[in-house]
């Protein structure tokens, strides 16, 4: 009975969406803010990647709030899973291929992650994507050797410092008489590695924060006690 009603609900939803299709004007988009931003972003922020301009300059406070959501998810994940007992049984080490692969990939993942973070204002990429790669770099050894563990205290200190950096840069703009999170410093040459003022520093803070948060959350998940 429950499956039948669920299927009926899905069918109704599908028909409703099909009905919306009939009236959709695919070629015309109603949102035009993007084109206006494309026209002025290069001069206003100095970043060659306009997505970065939007993420950090035009809606930087949104990014701060999104980091807060991620922080809350990571914190609650840690709270829900709790600490493992000292005598809880651990999984055995992974096979030869995963262990060797983890050792080989760790430095490569670190380099790629930092490259993506530092070039976030020039090429596709940035703090969020690079941060996830950094997190996977620190998580991979944990998959290969479940016996070893990440120091959660260090992770929370790094994460807190990165978050504080983001907010302090935002506050510096206020001391300068501008609005919160206004980009500061010289914009530099468009397309150069050191350009776009404070945006690369903000993205570095975002990347380190996302990376340490996800690494901590994944480590909590991996450390969860196996069932007896």
């Amino acid at each position: 009975m429950r499956r039948f009603t669920a299927a009926l609900f899905l069918l109704g939803l599908g028909v409703m969406i099909a009905a919306i299709y009939q009236h959709m004007d695919f070629s015309n988009t109603a949102v035009n803010a993007g084109q206006a931003i494309n026209a002025v972003a290069a001069e206003e922020t100095g970043a060659a990647n306009f997505v970065t301009s939007v993420v950090l300059a035009y809606r930087g406070i949104d990014t701060l709030l999104e980091l807060t959501i991620l922080f809350t998810a990571a914190m609650i994940g840690g709270m829900v899973l709790g600490r493992r007992r000292v005598d809880a049984p651990r999984d055995p080490d992974a096979g030869f291929i995963l262990r060797t692969g983890a050792d080989l990939l760790f430095p490569l993942l670190l380099v790629v992650g930092l490259y993506i973070i530092l070039h976030g204002h020039l090429t596709p990429g940035g703090g969020f994507q690079g941060g996830v790669i950094l997190a996977s770099a620190f998580f991979l050894p944990l998959l290969a050797r479940p016996g070893s563990s990440i120091n959660q205290d260090v992770i929370s200190i790094v994460e807190g410092l990165a978050g504080a950096t983001f907010i302090i840069i935002g506050l510096l703009a206020m001391f300068d008489g501008k609005e919160f999170l206004t980009p500061l410093l010289d914009k530099g040459e468009l397309g150069a590695l050191i350009s776009a003022g404070t945006l690369p520093i903000l993205y570095l803070a975002v990347g380190i924060k996302v990376g340490s948060e996800l690494a901590g959350l994944l480590a909590h998940l991996a450390e969860a006690e196996a069932l007896d």
Partner: peptide, 30 residues
Amino acid sequence: MADPVPQALVLTAIVIGVGILALALSLAIR
């Protein structure tokens, strides 16, 4: 050029999605 605003929104939404997924899985473990 494509509109950068939805791309910026999705960029953060994907990472938050990973966090929410991990949270849901940890609740499932409990």
